[in-house]
Structures are given as structure tokens and as C-alpha cells.
Design a protein around this nucleic acid. Structure first.
Lengths: 100, 100
DNA sequence: ATCGCATATCGTAAATATACGATAAAGAAT
DNA sequence: ATTCTTTATCGTATATTTACGATATGCGAT
């Protein structure tokens, strides 16, 4: 997936593909489920729950943040991650429409 | 995503991640949309609609077939691709549950 | 000023994904 | 038997992903 996808594909497909791709790894799904609903989590809690190294978790968090599905608020010395509800809703709607 | 994911992650997350990953490219979303509803398509129709080479389309079709979202029936000399409704329903349900 | 904690980033290795052109394969039609 | 059409597969190049350990950063506490 290159950065010229928007030349070739509709904005809707590019956007949905970005969300789907972000969901395309079990670790990231686990993170998203942990943050689902109202609950936010500290990064450390997530690291504890996932069977991978801290640096790898941080990478996954960054990907989810880049695609807009989560956001982190600093709460020194911890960082609290939450779902980004606006984008979550956009992703949900795109998915719902996709599956009819 | 390795083949030992099921050691580390729940079956549900592994399965949903596989579907999401398959949806994680605009070309594959286009294909799935073309096949949506009742309509099946010949491979050639898909190749014509996508802005990529025939061999690349064939690769994408294979990925979608491998993950179970589509199936192809031979109709010489063409091949007619359709949504695999059972797995489509499974994917839809997993997605719906995921997004609450 | 230094230490400790929580998290991000760097460097890197290995695996996977994306794309293409060329070629193979299967079967219908001549 | 040869040719044509359609699709899959091969070979290959490049880019991206995933993972880890090591190191850096930010900041509160000592």
C-alpha cells in the first residue's frame, strides 16, 4: 500500500483499508478490545497483558494512534490510552456499510 | 503475523485479524464490493476495473480466497468469483461484535 | 543534580506484502 | 494438432511489517 493509493482508489476504500489494516493483527485487536467502551488503559497495563515485548507494544500503539483509532493522554509518568470515539464511529460506519 | 499466533492470541482475535488483514488493501475492498450482494464476477471484469496488472489482481484474489471471503467456480475458459456467504457472515458477525 | 519509572524511539534482522512482466496451464474453437 | 482466451504461477525487486534489545526521553521524587 503506497502513499499514492488515493490516485488509484476511492477515498472510501482507502480509508476503510487503513482501518482494516490497523485491525489486521491480533495484538492490535487485543489492545482495541481493552480500550473498548468507556475504559481507558495505561500503556503498562497493555504491555502486561500482551505476550510481546514492550517496544513492540509501543509500535502497535503508534500504528493505532497514526490511523486515529486511539489517542493517548499524558498522565506523568504514565500515558493513558483511550479509543478515539470520533474515528471509531467513522470506522464502524464504514464497516457497517461495507457489510451492508 | 506468524503461524504461531494461535499460541499467543485468542482464536477470535486471530480469526478477525485475518479477515481484517484481507480487507486491508483498497484493491481487495474493491473486489469484495464488486462481488457484494448477489453479483458474481468473472476475473476478467475485475482485472478491467482495477488499476493494477492482471497478475497482481490474481494475487489479491488468491489472498481473498485463502482467507475464505470469496470462492471461484470454473466456467471455462473463465472463472466466476463470488462471495463465500458463510464466511462473509462470520466476518460480519465478528466485526459487528467487535464494534459492539 | 541525580535517580527511577514509564514510554518512545533507534537499530536491526527476518518475514511478509505488493507489484510487475514473463511464462505456464487448461480448455474451447478452429 | 494448433491456436486463442483466460487465469494462475514463477521469478524477482522493492517496500513494509513484525519483532527484539538497547538506548533515549520526559518527568516526578529524592
Amino acid at each position: 500500500m503506497s502513499n499514492t493509493d488515493s490516485d488509484k482508489y476511492s477515498e472510501e476504500n482507502v480509508q476503510l483499508a487503513r482501518f482494516a489494516k490497523a485491525m489486521g493483527h491480533p495484538a492490535r485487536l487485543m489492545i482495541l478490545r481493552m480500550l473498548g467502551g468507556e475504559s481507558c488503559c495505561f500503556c503498562g497495563d497493555i504491555v502486561q497483558d500482551l505476550p510481546i515485548a514492550q517496544s513492540t507494544v509501543s509500535q502497535h500503539l503508534k500504528e493505532l494512534k497514526d490511523v486515529g483509532l486511539i489517542q493517548g493522554e499524558i498522565n506523568p509518568p504514565k500515558i493513558r490510552y483511550c479509543i478515539n470515539k470520533d474515528n471509531w464511529q467513522i470506522a464502524k460506519t464504514l464497516m457497517d456499510d461495507f457489510f451492508e
